[in-house]
Amino acid sequence: ARRAAVLQVPVQATSLGPALAVAAALVKSAEDEAKSVTEQLDEPEREALRQAFGEGSTGKGVAKAMRGVAGAMKDLEDRQKSRATRVKRDTLDGALLDLAAFYRDVLMVQYGADVELANADRIEDVRRLAAAAPPEATLRRVEAIMRCRERLTLNVAPLLAVEEMTISLFQG
């Protein structure tokens, strides 16, 4: 489903409004996927930490051990937040690689290369985009995708980086 949504980006980003809308949808999809992944991990980790500090236990020394749980819980939450950001960026990067592969296929069709297409299931979209622009425009689009990937590694706000990319995609 994520791949199908990603491959709609070249088809839908036809002017400024739709380009900004697909950028927002792409980032939201990455956020939702990251949230789904991290929620499955976060709560069991918090519960295990509480148990390790003796929550729910009784006996000598439990009260003293429980005083240390707040700092440890804060450290765990910081690590979990960092992991969520990393998962979101990794998910977005995977989507950008799918998009780059799509434009690679467009370029192969434009040059008439006899190679297997990564997106043979989207051949009509590939052919339509190949006919609509010269290969130089396709290369600029691939460069925009790679520039977006680079900016994400430099901690540029994901929405800003993806918006810039989708605007570049329709401008060619």
Rank of each mutant, 00 (worst) to 15 (best):
A24F: 07
A25F: 02
L26H: 07
L26C: 08
L26G: 05
L26K: 05
L26Y: 06
L26E: 09
V27Y: 03
K28H: 13
S29Q: 10
S29A: 15
E31R: 11
E31K: 08
E31F: 02
D32A: 11
D32H: 01
E33K: 11
A34F: 00
K35L: 11
S36Q: 15
V37D: 01
V37C: 04
V37T: 09
T38K: 00
Q40W: 00
L41E: 14
D42L: 01
D42Y: 02
E43F: 12
P44R: 03
P44I: 01
R46S: 06
R46G: 05
E47M: 14
E47G: 07
L49A: 07
R50C: 02
F53G: 03
E55Y: 10
G56S: 15
G56M: 15
T58A: 11
T58R: 14
T58S: 12
T58C: 13
G59W: 01
G61Y: 03
G61R: 06
V62E: 07
V62Y: 02
A65G: 05
A65M: 05
M66V: 10
R67N: 00
R67T: 13
R67C: 00
R67A: 13
G68T: 03
G68C: 01
V69R: 05
V69L: 15
A72R: 04
A72L: 02
A72V: 04
M73A: 09
M73T: 10
K74V: 07
K74I: 04
K74Y: 05
K74D: 09
K74M: 07
D75N: 11
L76G: 01
L76K: 02
E77Y: 02
E77N: 11
E77P: 00
R79D: 14
Q80P: 03
Q80K: 04
Q80V: 07
Q80L: 15
K81G: 08
S82N: 10
R83V: 05
A84D: 01
A84M: 09
A84H: 08
T85V: 15
T85S: 14
R86T: 14
K88T: 14
